[in-house]
Each structure stands twice: as structure tokens, then as C-alpha cells.
């Protein structure tokens, strides 16, 4: 029996590694009492190594569905090996025969599970596979943007629209946060026209996405300048509006002017 069993195991190992079943017809064919009786290589319901009772295994069956390989009898080392498309069982054994079942399925895979008195009891892949399939709100994608701040340098004068008064030598557009810091040689004066912040629906000549006047810094808008704020003006320093008109500073419903404790907003011609 050992010889036959070895032959069977070798053949099965070959199947596992190569997954090929190109055996010639009638290999290993045996007679009654010889460990196996028939190798019938046909395309459907192939029986390889069909054995009789008490000879180590009783049947080997291969078909597209519910294939059985090396099906054995009780107490002969294993009782059946089943390879099928659904819920495949490999090396399924009986009680007290070394192992009870090895199941290869998609969920809760048990590898080398053993039965009672089999030398080990159970080894389970110990992870929470369910986590893979959990979801929540939203999606698996995000985008963050960082637009460079434009910082006033005042290097060549007070003109807002002069390139070289800004850190990148580019005058801010409506997408830029403008920052007026302390310690520069000149502070900006915004001349006649519209100074648009946050949005520029009226095609103002001066614009930025937001304006931050830092502590001890100053911005002066001249007598013919009109401010339209749709975004945010934060004043930690000083802002002086010299246009006496009632609409010199228009703050839209989306606009916010925040005057911090160190800041001041003066509207004085």
C-alpha cells in the first residue's frame, strides 16, 4: 500500500505544481486487489487510479464540476480529495487520520486545518479580511492645491501694479493671496480705479484673491479708488481709505473684513 500511496501522492503533487493532466491512457492501470483498477482517460468523468476497497484509495475522478482526486476510503489516510470550481476541498480526510479538511475558498480560508487527535487542530489565516471590503463616505481620491503667496517688497516705490514691488516680480492677479509685510522700504498705494479682492466681476485694475496687511504694515487706497471685496481682507496693520464716496468700500455678501487687535481701518479723505 505504501508504494501505491507514494505513487498517488507524487502524482497529486505533480498536479498541484503543474496543474496538468496530460497523462497517457491507461497508465497505472491495475487489476482487482492491485491497489487500483482502472485508468479511463476520457474527456468527461475521467477516472484515474480508481482503487478498490481497502487499498488506500477508492476512486480518482476528474470532471469539470465536482472533480474528485484520490478519493479514499475510511481509515486509509484520507477519505477524499475534491477539486471543484466551488468550495474546493483538498485533502479532505476523515477523523483520526492526520487531518480532517483543507478548504480553499474565498472567505475565511483555512489552510491545513486539522481534526481531533490529528497532531494539530487548526491554523487559520489570522486577519480581518472584512476590512478589505469596508467602505464609508466619499471616495478614494483627493486633491490639494497650493498657490504661491505674492509678498509685497516695495523695492522700487509704492505702485501696486509695478512688477518689481513684488517678490516674484509679478503683480498679483485674482488667484493670488497678497501679503503686505512690515519692514519694507515702501508700502503700497492703490491708485484710481477698482481694487477687487476675491473676485473681479467689474474688471478692476487692481486685484488679488485675498489681502493680508501684517502688523505695522500699511495699505493706502487713493481718493479715486473703489474697493470691491468678495473675499477676505485681514488687517493686522493699517488700512486707509481716502475716497470720501459712500461706495468707496463695498463689501459683498461673500466678503469678510477682519480687523485684528493690532489693526485699524481708517476711512478718511
Amino acid at each position: 500500500m505504501d508504494k501505491y500511496l507514494n505513487s498517488v501522492l507524487f502524482s497529486f503533487m505533480f498536479f498541484i505544481t503543474a496543474n496538468t493532466l496530460a497523462q497517457p491512457n491507461y497508465i497505472y492501470e491495475g487489476g482487482n486487489g492491485g491497489g487500483y483498477t482502472l485508468d479511463n482517460s476520457i474527456s468527461v468523468n475521467i477516472y484515474f487510479y480508481k482503487g478498490g476497497n481497502g487499498d488506500g484509495f477508492s476512486a480518482i475522478k476528474e470532471s469539470a464540476v465536482n472533480a474528485y482526486f484520490y478519493k479514499g476510503g475510511n481509515a486509509d489516510g484520507f477519505s477524499s480529495i475534491k477539486s471543484s470550481i466551488v468550495n474546493a476541498y483538498l485533502y479532505e480526510g476523515g477523523n483520526a487520520d492526520g487531518f480532517s479538511s483543507i478548504k480553499n475558498t474565498g472567505v475565511n480560508t483555512y489552510l491545513y486545518a486539522g481534526g481531533t487527535h490529528a497532531g494539530y487542530t487548526k491554523a487559520e489565516e489570522n486577519y480581518d479580511q472584512v476590512t478589505f471590503y469596508e467602505g464609508d463616505i466619499g471616495q478614494g481620491y483627493d486633491l490639494a492645491e497650493k498657490y504661491e503667496d505674492f509678498i509685497w517688497t516695495g523695492a522700487v516705490g509704492t505702485g501696486w501694479a509695478v512688477d518689481n514691488n513684488w517678490n516674484y516680480s509679478i503683480v498679483p492677479d485674482i488667484n493670488r493671496r497678497a501679503i503686505i509685510p512690515d519692514g519694507v522700504p515702501n508700502f503700497p498705494n492703490v491708485n484710481a480705479g477698482i481694487f477687487a479682492i476675491g473676485d473681479n466681476p467689474n474688471n478692476g485694475q487692481f486685484e488679488c484673491k485675498s489681502l493680508w496687511i501684517q502688523e505695522n504694515a500699511e495699505v493706502i487706497t487713493r481718493v479715486n479708488n473703489f474697493i470691491e471685496n468678495y473675499g477676505l481682507i485681514r488687517i493686522d496693520g493699517m488700512m486707509t481709505v481716502k475716497n470720501p464716496a459712500s461706495n468707496a468700500l463695498q463689501n459683498s455678501s461673500s466678503g469678510l473684513i477682519r480687523i485684528r487687535p493690532t489693526g485699524s481701518l481708517t476711512i478718511k479723505p
Binding site: Q139, D142, A144, D199, S210, S252, S254, G255, R258
Partner: peptide, 22 residues
Amino acid sequence: KIILAFIFGMISFISHANNVQI
């Protein structure tokens, strides 16, 4: 256009709020 008042000290602008967040 929506102009949202935002916290001025905020350095970046998050365009989406979802499972992956930058």
C-alpha cells in the same frame, strides 16, 4: 462664482473632503 471666506492662516485649499484627504 462662489467666494468662500476662508481662514487666512490656512496654507492650503482642500478641494474635496473624502476618504483620502490631503
